[in-house]
Nucleic acid binder design. Structure first.
Lengths: 155, 155
DNA sequence: TGGCTGACTATGGTTTCCACAAGTTAGACT
DNA sequence: AGTCTAACTTGTGGAAACCATAGTCAGCCA
């Protein structure tokens, strides 16, 4: 079964509750504020524990716990690094799954900038300087707006 | 000042903590599990209180509280409706700001489907049937990948 | 007028999130 | 051997999220 996103899915009984909920599972991993803010900072290039703590503005205890969960979830990895004259330390870096969270971070950034007071950073393309925004496109290259989006039950 | 997303922003001291945080403000509104799941259901077409409660799998008390917050935040509105032979009721519908949350919902859906066990629904374009995914594009039409994304401090 | 139903509201308890403060550990350096 | 520091860990407590149950309220209908 498939249904248009704006259709009356909610009034149909043939759709089981858990049928369309990868969102639930995503929120298990990144459903709290600290996790997302930590990810944002890693996208921005922060990898060291103390930098993350300072930039996110969270306590060390919470940062340590969240970072461990993100590593366990396969979103971050700890990579050893060594500055000259320093002992070996570990920096947090994005895994492939972590890099794939960029749309989530960008979507929140974009929405927050547009719809909350305070504005936000401009996102631009390094090559041409034009503003960047997220859009849904199909494999044929069409921009897909909300009314043309079809949700299929399973693939 | 501007910086590439993968640059060493975190090692620069000229960036204030609150400078790049519309994400924070977005999370004030939709930073909890219930709010996002409610929004997902409204996108799917559910508007009635009892349908939302049932489909999200949350208690009435929590749903009522979250819905009120979402209305206060300007993401949802209550619209009166009347089925024949029934009394007047209110359905929840997305405002413009609410519709703009579609990328957030899609990004989570897409990530959860790809990186958590259980898969997820296929998203396709109603007009051509091709699979849909989110991508960052600049105004000139280029696909912008992570390394080519520049974050400016203010606009 | 009284019952029924959808849409809440109220109360109490558990769990999760987070802050604050203090302690611990590993390894480079003296 | 002892110091210093980044990176944690542990403990306590408060606030927020969430659940379960029960109760309220408004209006349509018999």
């Amino acid at each position: 079964m498939t249904v248009r996103l704006t259709g009356r899915l909610a009034q149909r009984d043939d759709v089981a509750l858990g049928d369309l909920c990868p969102i639930d599972r995503a929120l298990q991993v990144i459903g709290n504020r600290t996790a997302l803010l930590l990810l944002r900072e890693v996208f921005y290039g922060a990898g060291r524990f103390d930098a993350l703590v300072k930039r996110v503005g969270v306590t060390e205890a919470v940062a340590a716990q969240r970072l461990r969960q993100l590593v366990d979830a396969g979103v971050l990895t700890k990579e050893p690094y060594r500055e000259p004259g320093q002992r070996t330390r570990h920096a947090y870096a994005l895994t492939d799954a972590g890099h794939d969270l960029l749309p989530v971070v960008l979507a929140l950034l974009q929405w927050g900038a547009a719809h909350t007071i305070g504005g936000g950073p401009a996102l631009t393309h390094a090559d041409c300087g034009e503003p960047v925004q997220l859009e849904a496109r199909c494999a044929a290259g069409h921009v897909v707006d909300e009314d043309d989006l079809v949700v299929g039950s399973r693939r």
